[in-house]
Simulated scan of single mutants.
Amino acid sequence: MNSYRTIYEYGCDEFTEERSRFIGYAKPINSEEEAVEFVDEIKKKHKDATHNVWAYTVGPTMNIQRYSDDGEPQGTAGIPALEVIKKEDLRDVVVVITRYFGGIKLGAGGLVRAYTRGAKIGLEAGKIIDRIWYQEVKIKVDYNQIGRVQNEIMNLGYFVKNTIYLEDVEFIIYSKPEDTQKLTDRITDITNGTANISFGEEFYLSENNGEIILD
């Protein structure tokens, strides 16, 4: 899987609807165990709340999907929260929406809207991002080739993680695997085959609007 959508970090936001207080929480997770731990953590934090509704998806194909209405009428809370995650096409995410009842009933439609909003604001607070698969490429050249190679890398739009100045100059670059051959061919061409090109690890990096976010 070359890319997927998730959230960047823990997020929390809240709103009031007909005197009921709704608090939306969201967190990126790596396993169902982590999702359950987060749900339990919020339940413990808000053990005096009227409801702690939750939903999560786990896995690259959302193969694990769970939710709970936590005492709200069936279909008015957990499923709407899960649907927000699915509509945003998010993987490995858990949301919890805490409600403190304010004395006014919202009705089925009002509950659906409130829990949908609660899930959405929690996810937005956690910053929805793309996780993209990248290849680390190391390019080592002589000092007299720095300017030309650096300009070419920047013009082609590759991300330079680091530049190391020792006996030679080494550029550490992040490239999408499908673009790596284009990069190596171009660098080989402009250096007449003198560049020393090697490959490091492959991994996921976070992107927001096409810009890499370094953890």
Rank of each mutant, 00 (worst) to 15 (best):
I173W: 07
D89K: 15
E88V: 02
L90M: 10
D189H: 12
F101A: 14
F15W: 02
F22H: 06
I129K: 02
N192Q: 08
T98G: 11
G193Q: 10
I213D: 08
T50R: 03
K86E: 14
C12A: 12
H46D: 13
L214P: 00
D48Q: 11
Y174P: 01
Y100C: 14
V58H: 13
D40P: 07
L106C: 05
E152D: 05
I121R: 00
I139Y: 09
S31F: 11
G126W: 03
V93H: 07
S198L: 00
E83Q: 09
T98V: 15
Y134T: 08
I79H: 06
E88M: 12
G200F: 12
I129Y: 01
Y143W: 05
R99L: 11
E18G: 01
K47I: 00
I121F: 05
F171I: 10
V141W: 08
L166T: 11
L111M: 02
Y56S: 02
A26Y: 13
T163Y: 05
N155H: 14
G59H: 07
V96F: 01
F171Q: 03
E32I: 04
V93M: 08
N52P: 05
K43V: 07
S206P: 11
V58M: 12
L183D: 06
Y174H: 06
I153H: 04
A195V: 07
G200I: 08
S3N: 14
R21A: 04
G110I: 05
K45A: 14
E72T: 11
Y158R: 12
N196C: 03
A108Q: 04
F199V: 10
F101Y: 07
I129S: 01
Y115N: 11
V169W: 15
L214I: 14
S206Y: 06
T61Y: 06
T163V: 10
L166V: 09
G122N: 04
I104Q: 10
K161R: 15
E124Y: 03
G118W: 07
I29Q: 12
I132A: 07
T180A: 12
S198M: 03
I29E: 12
T61I: 04
I172L: 08
D142C: 02
P60L: 12
D189V: 00
E178P: 09
G75W: 00
I212Y: 11
E124S: 06
E32D: 09
Y100W: 04
P80Q: 00
V94K: 06
